[in-house]
Design a protein around this nucleic acid. Structure first.
Lengths: 228, 228
DNA sequence: AGTCAAGATTAGGTATGACTAAGACATTAT
DNA sequence: ATAATGTCTTAGTCATACCTAATCTTGACT
C-alpha cells in the first residue's frame, strides 16, 4: 500500500463525511466541501477510481470502496486524536484546533498517533464530541438529533458539534455550552426564531439560542434526573 | 510573506546545513544532500533565486539571503523543537525521531511549536545536542571538534551528533554514550583504526570506537575534574 | 594555448492537481 | 415529446517539482 497524497486523503475524508447516508456523493457536493472547481473534482475522481479507493458512477456520484473507507477512517482517527491531544495536553482552545489538525493529519505517522492516544488513555470522543475510529477502523455512530428537534419541554444532552467553524465554536463556548451539558428546551418561538434553553447543570437562567446555531448542536434526548 | 512549499523548506534547510562555512554551496552537493538529480536542483535553484531566498552564481553555487536564512532557521527550529518534544514528552527513541520531525516540521504551525517549546521550558539544545534557534532566528554555534581530533590523552565531553542516521544513533546509545558523556581518549591505533575511549562518568572499562563513528561524535574539549 | 574531465545548466518530458471554457447528460417543466 | 435548467464531464492550460539526455563552463594538465 503506497503512501496516499495529501489531496487524496482530503477527498476520502470528505467523501466519508458526505456519504454517511449510504447514498452516492455527487461530485458537485464534493467540490463544494473541498472548495475546488467541479471540473477538478471530476479529474481527481477518475484517478481515485483507478486506484480502487472509490467507485464512480458517472453523473450519479461516488462511494468509498472498503479500501477507501479504511483509508478515510485512518485519516479521521489521526485528525481526532490530534485535536484531542492539542486540547487536553497542550491547552489549545477547542475552536482553533481544527486548522492545525487539518495539516498535521497528513504528516503524523500512525506510531505518533498511537503514542498520543496512549497518553490520552485512548479516548473514544474528540473535544467536539465526534467519535474517534479505532485503529481497526471501527467507529461508533451515535443516534443524535439537532437541538431544534427536541420540541418544547424536550430534554437532552449536548453531545456533538462540527469542528470546522471556529466562530461558531467560540460562541458556543462563550454561552457556557460544553459537550455533556444537559438542558431542557423551555420555549420555541415560531418561524425559526430563537429557542430558549434552560441548562439544568448550572441551575442557571434560561439561555436564548438562534435557530441556525441550534440546528448544529446535536443532542442525545434523555430524561433529566435531579442534579447529583 | 506567502507560505513556502515543502520542497522550498527542504532546500533552504539543506543549503543552511551545507553552507555554514560561508562558502557558496555547489548545486551538486545540494543534489546529493536532497537525493535529487543535479538537473532538478538547477531548476529549483532558479525559482528560489527569483523569490530572493537564495543568491545563485552560476557554476559557483548558492548562498542564502537574509530572508532565506530566516526561513531556514524557522524550519530548523520547528524540527528541533519537535524532536525534543517527541523524545522528552512522548518517550520516543532518539534514533527514530528524525523521520517523524522531518515530516511534521512542514505542517506544524509556529503557534504549536511555541506551545511545545513552552511545555519543554524552552530548551536550547535538541536530543542530539544540536542548538535550537530562537524565535528571532538566533542560533548558538558551538566550537566542537570530532572525537578523533582530541589526540591520545585528550579529554572531552560528547556534545553533538547528526540526527539523520538512525542506525548510528542506535549504536551510539547501545555503547552507553549520551550527549554530555565525558571521557578520556586513551589509545589510538594507527591507520584510522579503532580508538579506545575511557568513560569517566561511568568509571567503566575502556570502550573501543571505530574511526568513522568517532569522526561523527563532536566534542567539547575540557579537563575532567574528579567525578562529583 | 589547447584539450579534457567534472560539474552545472538547458532542453524536453512526466506526474499531480488545480483552473476555465465548452460540451454532454439527466431531470423537470411545458 | 421536446425544451429548458442545472449538474457533470471532457478538453485544454498552468504551476510545481521531479526525471533523463544533451550541452555548456570551469579549471586543471599537458
Amino acid at each position: 500500500m503506497t503512501e496516499l497524497s495529501r489531496s487524496t486523503e482530503d477527498y476520502l475524508k470528505a467523501i466519508y463525511g458526505l456519504g454517511r447516508s449510504g447514498e452516492p456523493v455527487p461530485t458537485g457536493a464534493l467540490a463544494d466541501a473541498l472548495a475546488i472547481a467541479p471540473a477538478s473534482v471530476s479529474g481527481m475522481v477518475r484517478r481515485l477510481a483507478e486506484t480502487d479507493l472509490i467507485a464512480h458512477e458517472p453523473y450519479r456520484g461516488v462511494q468509498l470502496t472498503d479500501a477507501g473507507r479504511r483509508a478515510a477512517l485512518r485519516v479521521i482517527r489521526r485528525h481526532r486524536i490530534l485535536e484531542t491531544y492539542l486540547v487536553k495536553v497542550l491547552a489549545w482552545d477547542w475552536d482553533s484546533v481544527h486548522a492545525e489538525a487539518e495539516r498535521l493529519e497528513h504528516a503524523a505517522s500512525d506510531l505518533l498517533v498511537a503514542r498520543m492516544a496512549d497518553a490520552l488513555g485512548n479516548p473514544a470522543f474528540d473535544p467536539h464530541g465526534a467519535p474517534i475510529p479505532t485503529v481497526d477502523g471501527e467507529i461508533e455512530e451515535q443516534e443524535l438529533v439537532p437541538l431544534t428537534e427536541l420540541g418544547v419541554g424536550g430534554t437532552g444532552e449536548f453531545r456533538l458539534v462540527s469542528d470546522d467553524d471556529a466562530e461558531r465554536l467560540r460562541y458556543i463556548a462563550s454561552i457556557g455550552f460544553r459537550v455533556g451539558t444537559r438542558f431542557e428546551l423551555v420555549e420555541v418561538t415560531p418561524f425559526r426564531g430563537p429557542l430558549t434553553v434552560l441548562r439544568r447543570e448550572l441551575g442557571a437562567s434560561p439561555q436564548l439560542i438562534g435557530y441556525e446555531l441550534a440546528q448544529s448542536l446535536l443532542c442525545l434526548p434523555c430524561t433529566l434526573e435531579p442534579a447529583a
